[in-house]
Amino acid sequence: MSRKPTVLVAGTGFAGEGHTDAFRAAGAEVVGMVGRTPHVAAEVAGRLGIPMHGTDWQAALRDTRPDIVAIATPGGAHFEQIRLALGFGAHVFCDKPLTTDGARAEQLLALADAAGVKTAFAASYRYTPSVRHAQALVAAGAIGRPTEVECISHFNLERGIPFGWSHRQEAGGGRLNNNFTHTLAIVSAVLDATPEAVTGEVRDDLRRAPIVDGVHNFATRRAFIPADLSDPKLQWGKSNVEWSYTVLARMKSSFAEAPVSALFKHGGLVPRFREDHIVFYGDAGAIYLEGHYGSGALHLCGPAGDWQDLALPADIAADTPDVTGETEQCWHYLAREFMADIQGRPVAPYPTFRDGCAYQKIIDLIRANANWTDLHPD
């Protein structure tokens, strides 16, 4: 491809702006942006210098004929947007989740394979510098054969966050779609692993959220939390999706003969006391990453049981996009890899629709909550 690849963006919120910046940094030309609300699409596209804006996705595809589409909308909108884009032969970069259930995800994977296009699935926190450092250490044998992983996070999200897509399963909400996708991608990348078996439990401990007008950008939704949640005039929307989960997976790793046990524990509404973390254990040591996506300091335990803090290697630091924000940094990294692949340059494996489809099937199984054994049957 001798000219700049062109990109059409679906979504005008935080992710839409982030995808726009990421593809521009990777060398693409963003030719259009589509959103739900005309004046918002006009304002955001104008501010970002995007020449075309509108609310009709099919018309935008027809008018711009993009090489790539970037799907930056809530998961409930993904299926139709991607289906139409594949009909135009566009490569697709999609934020997580791929869609709302495994059956639809399978359909999109089949359509993408039939169209012969490239796809990217942005479960992208696997690209934080510390996670890539951990990946290099495991590959070098720093912990021996991996045996166990634990991913622990407590977000303490405000219960007054206005009702929206994140509260509804059919809209792509839930903590599995928007947290577990990242941690599973991290574990899969660091261990060069795929999940073989899974069991889990989910819980909706929110149940409802206030309905508030004017919320547009997911990143600024906290500004709309009502001052008085006991106000009798407030209207409430019903949550129908999980806010906490516990998942246990067996992972097949190229670095281990036996399956690796992986625990994913997330409490969306509960406070943390110690730091969130991700730990990779092996038969000769362990790697402790601070932070809910392992993006903080890295600590290595050697065979003697001594812990040491490791600085980020210079080559990983140099390969990290120079942008503010972990989410934005990871989008930039994945968009750069995706563009290189589209242009025929060699790249390391990155997450695609095949991963997004597998993740959605796993989420369906976990949400079914069908793994309990009754100890006191009647």
Results as ranks from 00 to 15, higher is better:
Tyr293Arg: 05
Glu257Tyr: 01
Ala297Gln: 09
Pro232Ser: 06
Leu300Pro: 01
Lys265Leu: 13
Leu289Asn: 00
Pro271Thr: 11
Trp243His: 14
Pro259Glu: 04
Val279Glu: 01
Ser230Gly: 13
Leu300Arg: 08
Asp231Gly: 13
Pro271Asn: 11
Asp231Leu: 08
Val212Ile: 15
Pro232Phe: 11
Ser295Gln: 12
Ile211Asn: 02
Ile225Leu: 08
Lys233Ser: 15
Ser261Asn: 14
Leu300Ser: 07
Ile225Met: 05
Val247Lys: 08
Ala284Pro: 01
Glu290Arg: 10
His292Glu: 04
Asp283Gly: 11
Glu275Lys: 05
Gly302Thr: 06
Gln235Glu: 12
Ala286Tyr: 02
Leu269His: 11
Trp236Ile: 10
Asp213His: 15
Val212Gly: 09
Lys252Leu: 05
Ile211His: 04
Trp236Arg: 11
Val241Ser: 06
Val212Asp: 12
Gly294Val: 01
Gly268Ala: 05
Glu257Trp: 01
Gly296Asn: 01
Asp276Gln: 14
Leu263Asn: 10
Ala286Pro: 01
Ile278Ser: 03
Ala258Arg: 15
Phe255Trp: 13
Pro226Leu: 07
Leu298Arg: 01
Trp243Leu: 09
Val212Met: 12
Gly237Arg: 13
Arg222Met: 09
Gly291Glu: 00
Pro226Asn: 06
Ala286Trp: 04
Ala249Phe: 00
Pro303Asp: 03
Tyr288Asn: 07
Ala227Tyr: 06
His299Ser: 03
Pro271Met: 06
Glu275Thr: 14
Leu248Lys: 10
Gly296Phe: 00
Ser253Phe: 01
Pro303Gln: 10
Val215Ile: 12
His266Tyr: 14
Leu300Trp: 05
Tyr245Trp: 05
Ala262Gln: 02
Gly285Arg: 04
Arg221His: 06
Leu289Trp: 01
Glu275Ala: 14
Val247Trp: 02
Leu234Met: 09
Ala262Met: 07
Thr246Pro: 00
Asn217Thr: 08
Ser261Thr: 15
Lys238Cys: 05
Asn217Ala: 09
Leu248Val: 12
Leu234Phe: 08
Leu234Asp: 09
His277Ala: 05
Lys233Trp: 06
His266Met: 15
Leu300Met: 05
Arg272Asn: 07
Asp283Val: 04
Val212Phe: 07
Lys252Phe: 00
Ile287Arg: 00
Leu269Ala: 14
Phe218Cys: 03
Val241Glu: 08
Ala219Thr: 09
Ser253Tyr: 04
